[in-house]
Design a protein around this nucleic acid. Structure first.
Lengths: 249, 249
DNA sequence: CGAGCGTTTGATCGGTGTCAAGGATCGTGG
DNA sequence: CCACGATCCTTGACACCGATCAAACGCTCG
């Protein structure tokens, strides 16, 4: 942040979760033209139906993707954090099929879609890493489908909390067992196919079973193994290749 | 099929839904090394946890991706048909995070993963089309999340039937309003987060409301517009760019 | 023709939704 | 620094959609 030339470094860190990059490739990423904006909480970054000409990269803060159905109900399909290229889909596919909104105050870099295409083919390792990134996105979607389709409310929420912790830890933003969760219970409901009332009761249930502790927005997972069991959680779908499993229990 | 050199042409047709390809690019696709296999119905093409070294391309027949949860319940995350590259994810990401199984007897081409990577970067238009393809996959996953999370049983099934019809039509396999549905009610249940018993009752309900007609595996949608309304269906997420909407009502 | 799978049906149960109201917390402006 | 309004969280009573369990029926393909 201090050094203007390092602004896009979270993208490098994220892509290196998937593939190593050499210095020239990193320089090419840092040299991508972009404009940085500060967004307040609950700001709309992309609106369904628009034709975004830029990809947006989250440099700081959290965001989510969602759709609003005809009856007004809402479905959240992904949560995003530092380093995530939130809008590669919409930028490449033309018309946005869903909206993107900030969860918290956030810093976002907008990169022209043509530049994203260019760097992907000029530097195949970068392209492959970006492709991996979209494939891992897909893997997470599939797990969410299974989560919503086949797990009960307690397991669904436990699963979401496990995933969030692991992903935070993978990008160096803390410990999977204790973190700030920047979501309201209504947003948790929209991400799990429940109602906010039931999310409330279920969180209290998880707490009474000693699986989690809460205070304000902070969540603590008392015993990771028990939590995984309660969630039916298996981190394989995140494709984190061992970085995470090697960290202290 | 008759001409050995045209075996992979369904892949060209599929990719050209997303981007036009020039003759050299088409030739490169047709020249991809591959082996063709016939698979019987209910055959397993990829098993979760394996490390597939090949992508598999569906030349004929139908398949689906699924996960089995710890309690034995099953979640189907995608249905695939002619031209779909079913296993790009697993082949590129390393370890398969889900299984792939045939729905019907099928003809499948296996292409080495290294060849898929090579062609993607040697012919950027092909690479871009493949990337689009994975992005559209992601878009469909997001719609399924919304479908399962926020629609009731009747709308969920109606939505699945609309999608199936449109996709069949897009690859020239018939009319969106009347087709053979190669799925059992139990598979429909696993694809919609319901039980087979409830799928049965709901299909009969759709039938009694005059939205669909059934006989054996054939499904007919009486009035497309009414069906879309019942499903809350909006084809935008399929990113078919007008090919479909331009067809006769 | 028989076995096996898939479909249909009925009765009952339970997990989640709905509606409504009160209480806590946060952000903002004075 | 406090006051106030707006969100957000919590709680209760009740309704209902879809799950469960069990059994019979009908294809379809050896």
């Amino acid at each position: 942040m201090q050094d203007r030339s390092q602004t896009l470094s979270p993208m490098i860190d994220k892509l290196q979760l998937w593939r190593p990059l050499d210095p020239a490739e990193k320089r090419a990423i840092l040299a991508l033209p972009h404009k940085v904006e500060e967004a307040r909480a609950h700001a709309c970054l992309v609106r369904e139906g628009e034709k975004p000409s830029h990809s947006c990269l989250l440099l700081e803060g959290f965001a989510f993707r969602h759709k609003v159905l005809v009856d007004g109900s809402r479905s959240i399909s992904a949560i995003h954090m530092k380093g995530d290229i939130v809008d590669l889909q919409n930028a490449l596919l033309g018309t946005a099929d869903h909206s993107v909104e900030t969860l918290t105050r956030a810093t976002v870099a907008f990169i022209p879609r043509e530049e994203m295409k260019r760097i992907a083919f000029e530097f195949p390792s970068v392209g492959l890493a970006m492709w991996y990134d979209t494939l891992v996105d897909g893997s997470i979607f599939r797990e969410w489908i299974a989560n919503i389709a086949r797990r009960d409310a307690a397991a669904r929420l436990a699963h979401l909390l496990c995933e969030f912790g692991l992903r935070l830890q993978a990008i160096g933003l803390g410990d999977r067992r204790s973190y700030q969760l920047p979501m309201t219970q209504e947003q948790l409901a929209d991400a799990t196919g429940l109602t906010s009332v039931h999310v409330n009761r279920t969180l209290m249930d998880l707490e009474s079973r000693g699986l989690i502790a809460r205070s304000k927005k902070a969540v603590t997972i008392a015993d990771w193994k028990r939590m995984e069991d309660a969630a039916g959680f298996n981190e394989a779908y995140l494709h984190l290749r061992g970085q995470v499993s090697l960290s202290p229990p």
